[in-house]
């Protein structure tokens, strides 16, 4: 099968100066003092290939580098020198209420997001009713998102993602906030089918049962290092031993 995401020797180090601000005055002072910033290694030498259609889980404790890894794949962050990331396909990251502007209505947000994901206005127009229908938001199409509940925003995010034909989904602690049980069931059903459609899904979650149920392979991260990679059963056992 084709590889859609390929990570080679990915490291990511953040440089932080505590209690400092990026201002012109500070820059001049720092030149004189030569105070080095503190480096925080968020990811250390990760290599990974994810195949088309794979359901891939990433687990680890808070601060283990899960979200950093997703942001690298999205292209928001750039890896340290020597690392290479290749992504084939349109990627969307789903996190609670993210990707939307709270000042805009659902309609505008759908057009903005759809457009960035590569659809033309005509294509979005055709899918518009489906998206609103799936999210069950018919009565709030022109309401600004700041008046939505967080469950409603998650439903909209999910519906947009499903209908915009992104190839790769990055689910960042998403199912936790997707709203009521009925909708959760509906979206999980769609996700089981989507495996057949050949979409690639990366789950980041603390809900181990979700990971166990849906994933083909799981990566365990600890302090930025890849500790284990394999079948959900093996890796989850290791995770439990590791931390308990």
């Amino acid at each position: 099968m084709d590889t859609v995401i390929s990570l080679k020797n990915i490291s990511k180090t953040f440089y932080i100066r505590e209690g400092h601000h990026d201002s012109i005055r500070e820059k001049v002072f720092n030149l004189l003092k030569g105070d080095p910033p503190r480096s925080i290694p968020a990811l250390k030498d990760i290599s990974l290939d994810i195949k088309k259609g794979e359901n891939f889980g990433i687990i680890g404790r808070n601060g283990s580098g899960k979200s950093t890894l997703l942001k690298l794949i999205i292209g928001a962050y750039r890896p340290d020198k020597g690392g290479r990331i290749t992504v084939n396909g349109k990627v969307i990251r789903l996190a609670l209420g993210m990707g939307f502007d709270p000042e805009l209505s659902a309609r505008d947000n759908i057009y903005v997001n759809g457009s960035i994901l590569g659809l033309t206005f005509r294509q979005i127009g055709k899918k518009f009713d489906d998206i609103i229908g799936f999210a069950e938001l018919e009565k709030f199409v022109d309401t600004q998102l700041k008046f939505y509940s967080s469950g409603m925003v998650s439903r909209l995010a999910f519906a947009v993602a499903l209908h915009t034909e992104a190839d790769i989904f990055l689910m960042d602690e998403f199912f936790g906030g997707v709203g009521d049980e009925g909708f959760k069931e509906k979206s999980e059903k769609v996700f089981q089918q989507s495996f057949v459609e050949g979409r690639t899904i990366l789950y980041v979650s603390h809900q181990l049962d979700t990971i166990q149920e849906y994933c083909d392979r799981v990566l365990l991260l600890n302090m930025g290092e890849a500790v284990a990679l394999g079948s959900p059963k093996e890796v989850l056992n290791q995770y439990k031993q590791f931390f308990h």
């Binding site: 999205i74 992504v87 990251r93 993210m98 939307f100 903005v112 994901l117």
Partner: peptide
């Protein structure tokens, strides 16, 4: 930021 962190473009 809300777009940059979630979608590639």
């Amino acid at each position: 930021r809300y777009l940059i962190e979630n979608i590639q473009f």
